[in-house]
Design a binder for these strands. Structure first.
Lengths: 213, 213, 213, 213
DNA sequence: GATGAATGAGATTTCATTCAT
DNA sequence: CATGAATGAAATCTCATTCAT
């Protein structure tokens, strides 16, 4: 019955991942040492190397599941039935923001705000693939919401939209308030931000069409 | 003649600050070593400790002048005569963004995107005062541009506006492209972002007024 | 049926020895890890410790059979019928050199070129006995070839002869070329080296005899 | 007066080099740690990194002066006036052997008996240049001694000659006896080895010439 | 005022080896 | 018999910082 050992191993690995996630999130990738992670995970620092080739690999293994979960939740939000375009975008944004605030420091790593070393070492790894996937989902959804076809126009709008939610996340990513507290306090503002953008996009559209005539 | 020495000292200090500013900006706070700064400044690394207690203190002394310069430039942009509301906001934003992209690594430190260590050490120091000043300037200018009085309404709009420009800065703050290249390539998008927001703010306003009637 | 287990055990042990031999030979003692050996042997690294107290013990158990095989081959070469004295010595040398080049890293260990740690641990163990045996075989053969009785004279000649072949082995023991390639390329030189020595020994002999007269 | 500091620095550097030379010689490159060297040199291990980029650089800086000294001594021996060909070669060999025995472990590193890592990392560094220079000196001297022109013939003889002295060095390179003791005890044998080779080379030459006729 | 010398603390990573199953 | 899990010791190297001049 090797099951018992297997279970122990998975527990240890999970403990390491959990510890690393928490610490990276709290203090940032570079500021956390392998020994700290090990102590938090309740094992020797060498044990980490059984499960992860090195610190960076640990970070990557750590990043993928949350990002995939985020994508799942964003897809759900994007395809919510019986919701207006604005509502869908608001839901999508809330999901994204909540995720970022719930993962704080990690967020900075995921979205390249931090740590050039990480980006340098894995220019086109799975994380980048996931990032791109999120952006595309966002663009697609926005295109539907605005009735815009793929193209430069939509790309520009998507960027602007992304700046907005990225800015929100960045703004609070180092706040001491909990994700929940922040969401409770600021969700109206976030929703309004989305509403403003959508109104602005539409208005711009109308202006241009008027200009054409 | 202590004047001569004083002058030399002042020069050395300035050289250190300049070197540190450049290097922190280029590579980020953690990635720069005291020896690098000293080499760039043309002095011994021990000399730095004559003027600054430690690396962190150096960083803080370093942050204030650029932020004050930024405020100056933003004030100029905000009070540009013969410019429409949107144009003024666009100019303001360009100034802010260009500053952030021109100072990269530093930007992250100024605006708390990075390195909680720094924040921890100076919870509400002069930097925070400056940050707040910038935000107020922005709010005032936006209030004038939108014809809105101080209050919750304007605060919310200001936040949304800040998210946007902060998001822009954050998005490109780790790009390999130079500030100039980025500005050249993306200024239209940035301007459009501002335009969209202004249109959105106004549209929202109209909606609400309509609702009131 | 403990036989079956015994056999399996024997096989595992043999696999370990074979793997260690190959890897030590290829990369040198220090550069090989227990895990590498285990992987090559197709077992867990802990299994090695069932059969061998530690890495060093493994090395020692490993050294004996090849050395005995070498002695066998050298004895065969030494007693080859219908060969001239020089030819016998050349064959003997080729056998020795080929063995050394075919075992590279191991050779250094066998003949104390490397790693005093090993020597320290077993100052006059079985390996030394074997080494001495080889040298005696060599001396005996050389004595016959030169028509010299045991004694200082023969001892000196044997040493000189040993230096030569040891020098050959040492020279190429870290070359990147394969044993086969080296043998093919350099056998003429090696043979000539032996021929030169034999000529020299004989000439020296003649000189001395002339001197005596 | 920075002279005092400068002197201290050179003393420290010299102490490091001396300690490293001794320890590398005694235990081999890989087996010696930077901390050991530092302790022996009477400084902190970080101090070493002030003077040498890394362990390998330390080794190289360490290797060059002895090798150059060796070349000098060999050149002197090679051009000794009023000495027969054999005597010159014997002197040359004694110089080489004495150097090797006096530098033991280091010898293995210089002549590639040890540590593939070292060779790999600096395939054509200054050390290799020096090695080649020694071999050429040896070949030239041997050519003069044998009256042989440059060419395959001389190259083969040089190789054989090199094997011999390399073999001598290798044989005793891990002996516990001091260089002096070994030289005293074995110089006659070493000289005889050279004499035998020279006799052999000449005899071979005669044989071939006879064969040609 | 300024500097070169020197250091201690600490980071990542590797490896031989033991323990529980 | 055999193994996966886990560890302690140790190695190289970096860096901010202090001390003596």
């Amino acid at each position: 019955m090797p099951r018992l050992q297997e279970k122990r191993a998975e527990e240890t690995k999970a403990a390491i991942v959990a510890a690393a996630k928490q610490l990276f999130g709290e203090k940032g990738y570079e500021a956390v040492t392998m020994r700290e992670i090990a102590k938090e995970a309740g094992c020797s620092h060498t044990t980490i190397y059984i499960y992860f080739k090195d610190k960076e690999t640990l970070l990557h293994h750590l990043s993928v599941p949350p990002l995939e979960e985020l994508r799942g939740r964003m897809e759900t939000a994007a395809s919510e039935p019986g919701a207006s375009a604005v509502e869908r975008m608001q839901k999508l944004s809330r999901v994204f923001i909540e995720f970022c605030l719930g993962n704080r420091g990690l967020y900075g790593i995921f979205f390249g705000v931090n740590s050039e070393r990480v980006d340098t070492a894995s220019p086109s790894s799975e994380i980048n693939r996931l990032r791109l996937g999120l952006f595309n989902l966002l663009r697609r959804t926005l295109g539907e919401a605005l009735g815009l076809p793929d193209g430069e126009r939509l790309l520009a709008c998507s960027r602007i939209y992304f700046y907005q939610i990225h800015g929100i996340a960045a703004t609070y990513s180092h706040s001491k308030e909990s994700a929940d507290a922040l969401m409770e306090r600021l969700t109206p503002t976030f929703d309004e931000a989305v509403a403003v953008l959508m109104l602005g996009f539409n208005a711009l559209q109308s202006n241009k069409e008027v200009g054409k005539q």
